[in-house]
Design a protein around this nucleic acid. Sequence first.
DNA 1: CAGTTTAATATGTGCAGACATATACCGGCG
DNA 2: CGCCGGTATATGTCTGCACATATTAAACTG
Lengths: 233, 233
Amino acid sequence: MTTPEINTWQGVQEEVRRRITQRVWRPGEFIPHEADLAAEFGCARATVNRALRELAEAGLLDRRRRAGTRVAVNPVRKAQLEIPVIREEIVAKGQAYGHRVLSREMPVPPAEVAARMQVAPGRKLLHLRTLHTADGAPYVYENRWINPEAVPAVLAEDFSAISPNEWLVREVPFEGGDFTFSALSAGGAEAEVLSCPAGTGLFVLDRTTWTGAGMITSVRLVFHPGYRMHTRL
Amino acid sequence: MTTPEINTWQGVQEEVRRRITQRVWRPGEFIPHEADLAAEFGCARATVNRALRELAEAGLLDRRRRAGTRVAVNPVRKAQLEIPVIREEIVAKGQAYGHRVLSREMPVPPAEVAARMQVAPGRKLLHLRTLHTADGAPYVYENRWINPEAVPAVLAEDFSAISPNEWLVREVPFEGGDFTFSALSAGGAEAEVLSCPAGTGLFVLDRTTWTGAGMITSVRLVFHPGYRMHTRL
DNA sequence: CAGTTTAATATGTGCAGACATATACCGGCG
DNA sequence: CGCCGGTATATGTCTGCACATATTAAACTG
């Protein structure tokens, strides 16, 4: 019996995946060395390496130098979810995007916000409350703090034509971000802005972004009732 | 001036990242070809390719054959979140894990569930309601449907010693999954099980998993009030 | 026999060269 | 002028080889 050669990394990956899901190689078990697999599939070791590396990154395999490669005991499912750009998400659904600024102030922030933004207490920050709408209906209530020291140009922008998020993405080179997903019960403010009964469960995304120089912005997005964030495999 | 050679893919990636965040290469702009970069850094094209490929996967670059590589206009932020194994999440926090089965029945499922599980209407499914606890306090309320045709062994298991999730992960070779994050307002059932006031906003994760043969299980996890799911960059 | 050094080995990475593939661009044709 | 097909080109991938690095297992030593 001649095995047809598998000499693409996708092919190798597919075959290895199959052997894992079909339990040819059981969880916790060592699989053959790269060199052996390369020989079996009739391809170069680099090709096998590429295939296995990705599977290890996905959490299906555990690899260690010298020790070898084994099938992960309980596959840590890492879901990759795309953080939406609100406008694009709405437009993609064929709805009309709109947004308006509800308030724009420059107060001394509450201690909790000052801490998260790593600014000295007493320092003022730009505070924006905006609403994104889809076909006129409330979609996301955005509550954002911006550090004007990190982005001086922000003071000259009124965000009537462009949302703070998109303006920041365009103007400021981000380096890192921090995301927290949670839920809250609509209080008076959220209920009014999103036109829903108080007490409605709402999906919340808190995001803080920074650059090497320091914190730029911290935003809470409160989504309309019924919002779902979805991902596959 | 002699540029020190950068001949590791990590080094190349770091340098390219720097040029993007510091706007040496501006959003939308084309960057030099792989061959040119390889020459500049004094490394092989394969090394540059590896560095750029990962940045493209991360959404920082747009690459197309023949056209070239350009800096992404608005970096699609892809957050990779780890779907927790409840028990491990609790144990990692130094708390005592516990779980108990609230109910175990085999009814004809509501139409909505039958559709999601792709079983003929009228067909019975195993329905489990369980509660995971951390130091005795309610942590997650789990509402699960299992297709016994896909996993016959499930009928012999009472899940007193092991949670349905972990049992399934151990026994059944998954192939794919479907995740939805949302929020709900605690109704009577959730409020009682999670010991919180009705109307509390709760974080919800719906997951459906399948294998080539068909749907295996569909579960709704309702987390305790205040639960947060977190990820970085 | 316990502790430490040394060697063996699997994965990780780099290189040069080649071919594969998608596609932007240009020139020809109706 | 618009359509169509050919071609150049940038990325995508494979190969065979080499060396680097982490880690285990064996050998050695007091």
